[in-house]
């Protein structure tokens, strides 16, 4: 990053999120670092409870108490935003960073028309007249592919289907032309047939608006479809991060390998899918060393003692001691390296 003229849009540095409880402090996110460049789609995958959504919530400043950022930094265009007072953070929310939630059925206030909700959001961020805002609301609805937007703008959320509501949610996220959209499982609650449409729409809009996306999901298919890079999370830590193609075709971390192996491939002659034995540890009992070591087939002594940092492994970076033999000093520079890779790719 130091020799980069361009700072990344979003930079998460050594993020640590804690939940103080009666029986001690739970560390939900531990030493997570990654960058997102302008217009880039970063997919974040992992099992439920791996800390994907929590990371998203922390970035937009909506961690629910008692959860708190205990350490690390979140930089937006080089400026720290993790310690901003509420009033200032509010100006970033919606305007610079927007968020899309999992369930479109519950994301919209049932007592207001979609138009009222869109116009309210536009007027919060832009200094335009109500009439202009209404026109913009209609334009946005057109843009997200809602037929008959002039009438639909005055309809209530319950008059829309799930897929249509998620389109409305996307329109709401786009209201103030944000630089980054955090999409927290945007398709999980939708019909499979609708999922593809919503993902295609999100991809198209973000390309047009040059909006970066942090796409949180556990659906590898969605990731493979839209993401430029992928971060794999496990038990609150980054297991592997790298360009989508390399990570899908040639995963390095044993956990990522397991994830990829568990996806059925049409036409492939595989008798059984790979299965990772056991389950992800609870936050209260994360094992010493590598968090994955009790389930790992290639585990050795060091994994049980020392925690691995991200290590460059060809095109991706994996937090695994298997790859430590090349260079002992090379640690935790993965992200900078990564974004560089990415930029070289796009250049």
């Amino acid at each position: 990053m130091t020799n980069d003229t361009q700072t990344p849009l979003l930079s998460v540095r050594n993020l640590r999120i804690e939940f103080p409880t009666r029986r001690g402090v739970l560390v939900a996110i531990d030493d997570v670092s990654f960058d997102i460049s302008k217009g880039e789609v970063l997919g974040v995958v992992g099992e439920s409870g791996a800390g994907k959504s929590l990371t998203g919530a922390a970035i937009i400043g909506l961690l629910e108490p008692p959860g708190r950022i205990a350490d690390g930094q979140i930089l937006l265009q080089g400026e720290p935003i993790h310690n901003l007072p509420h009033a200032q953070m509010r100006k970033i929310r919606g305007r610079k960073i927007a968020m899309i939630f999992q369930d479109p059925l519950t994301s919209l206030n049932p007592l207001f028309t979609v138009g009222q909700q869109i116009i309210e959001t536009i007027l919060t961020h832009k200094d335009i007249s109500e009439k202009q805002a209404r026109q913009r609301a209609i334009d946005l609805l057109t843009e997200v592919g809602i037929p008959g937007p002039e009438q639909r703008v005055d309809h209530y959320p319950h008059q829309f289907s799930g897929g249509m509501r998620q389109r409305v949610v996307i329109a709401l996220a786009l209201c103030a032309d944000p630089e980054l959209i955090i999409a927290d499982e945007p398709t999980t609650a939708l019909d499979v047939s609708v999922q593809a449409q919503i993902i295609a729409l999100l991809k198209k809009l973000c390309k047009e608006h040059q909006t970066a996306v942090m796409l949180v999901t556990h659906d590898m298919g969605v990731i493979a479809e839209v993401a430029d890079r992928v971060a794999v999370m496990y038990a609150g830590r980054l297991a592997e991060i790298g360009p989508v193609k390399e990570l899908v075709q040639n995963p390095q971390h044993p956990y990522t390998k397991g994830l990829m192996g568990s996806i059925p491939v049409l036409g492939a002659d595989i008798k059984r899918l790979v299965q990772i034995d056991g389950s992800m540890p609870r936050l209260t009992s994360i094992p010493k060393g590598c968090a994955f070591n009790p389930r790992c087939k290639q585990v050795f002594d060091r994994c049980r003692e020392e925690r691995p940092n991200l290590i460059a492994t060809g095109k991706t970076h994996a937090a695994c001691w298997l790859y430590d033999n090349q260079d002992k000093n090379q640690d935790n520079q993965g992200n900078d390296q990564d974004s560089q890779d990415k930029r070289e790719q796009t250049a």
Partner: peptide, 17 residues
């Protein structure tokens, strides 16, 4: 605690609204 309140916060609406 509902999602639409969380979403309203994520849209940057004022606390009063």
């Amino acid at each position: 605690r509902t999602d639409y309140i969380k979403f309203a916060r994520a849209r940057g609406l004022s606390n009063r609204a």
